[in-house]
């Protein structure tokens, strides 16, 4: 059996009283695009820092292509490209100097390095800015330098922490396209953390991380299908809790309060709407029915909403 690109077993991390990872276990197959979806503070960044060998887990193991990151960090680092949320570029060096420096750190040199740099500059549209200092670039451009850097040694695994935070929608789309191209053309395994549904939705597989636990994992389609119902969202005209109680008693079903709205999972929800409105029309400002999205998957498993 060939090794998984990433194999996580009962991973825990505790810092003082704070337990940020509570026994994670999952794996990512080679050439998969895997998204770790979760709110800020859910443990994503801790996991990212353990994968990139910057911090050690309290217990459990994490292997990159069969190499334990704690026991053999140097070897694990060699097969990974890491894209940090705050770009790890030197503002006083030019774009090309930053790339060259990164290549050296990964043992690249000579013609191979020069070719790699040229290719990276072109691929990310950085050629016109190659001689500018990184500190003079916009946030989006700096992010591209960071990505170009990480891909320079052509790592089989690319890990990215919130790669599209601070990017405008166009730049975000381009980034996701680039990542998919990388997976298809080079067979690169991609693991990214995100708190954005749109980003997770394009992944081959998604893991939902909530309060240090993996609450669901699968393809976006499987996760959505697993709910097996429509989502009914009620915007109450008055007190949400009071309406929740009334609906529960009258129809005998699960009603959860999410933010300021009531949420019901139900098959053929459109047939239920007339009954609901007839019974509590005065208490309801609006009702909507929708097919579940990944957002609903998150709410289904955690009882909270991902985005505000």
């Amino acid at each position: 059996m060939t090794a998984q690109a990433l194999e996580v077993t009962d991973l825990r991390h505790r810092y003082g009283e704070r337990e940020s990872l509570r026994g994670l276990g999952f794996s990512v197959a080679p050439a998969d695009l895997f998204a770790l979806l979760g709110p800020n503070g859910g443990g994503k960044t801790t996991l990212f820092r353990i994968i990139s060998t910057l911090i050690a887990p309290t217990s459990g193991t994490l292997e990159v292509f069969g190499v334990d990151v704690v026991a053999r960090p140097a070897e694990a680092r060699r097969s990974m490209g890491v894209v940090f949320q705050s770009p790890a570029v030197d503002p006083w060096l030019t774009v090309i100097e930053n790339l060259r420096h990164h290549g050296y750190l990964y043992g690249m040199s000579g013609a191979a390095l020069n070719r790699g740099i040229e290719h990276a500059l072109e691929r990310f549209g950085l050629s016109p800015r190659a001689s500018d200092r990184a500190g003079a670039l916009s946030g989006g451009l700096r992010r591209r330098v960071e990505l170009a850097k990480a891909l320079l040694p052509e790592p089989p695994l690319l890990v990215l922490d919130e790669p599209s935070s601070g990017l405008d929608p166009t730049a975000r789309r381009e980034l996701l396209q680039e990542l998919r191209r990388l997976r298809d053309d080079a067979g690169t395994t991609i693991v990214l953390t995100t708190h954005m549904i749109e980003e997770a939705a394009v992944a081959d597989r998604v893991g939902i991380l909530h309060e240090g636990r993996l609450v669901a994992i699968g393809t976006p389609r499987d996760l959505v299908d697993a709910i097996g119902a429509d989502i009914l969202t009620i915007d109450p005209a008055g007190n949400a809790a009071a309406l929740q109680q009334k609906v529960k008693e009258r129809f005998d079903l699960d009603v959860t309060i999410v933010g300021a709205t009531l949420r019901i999972e139900r098959k053929r929800a459109h047939e239920f709407v007339p009954k609901l409105v007839e019974a509590f029309g005065n208490d309801i400002a609006s009702v909507s029915v929708g097919k579940p999205t990944l957002e609903d998957v998150f709410t289904h498993h955690t009882g909270t909403r991902l985005s505000s």
Binding site: S52, T53, L54, A74, E75, R77, R78, M80, V82, F84, S86, P87, A88, V89, D90, P91, H102, L105, Y106, G107, K149
Partner: peptide
């Protein structure tokens, strides 16, 4: 400063001895 600016983490995540 390298730690605050983020440059250092890139060096530490690299395979450089």
């Amino acid at each position: 400063e390298d730690r605050q600016e983020g440059f250092l983490q890139g060096v530490l995540a690299s395979p450089a001895p």
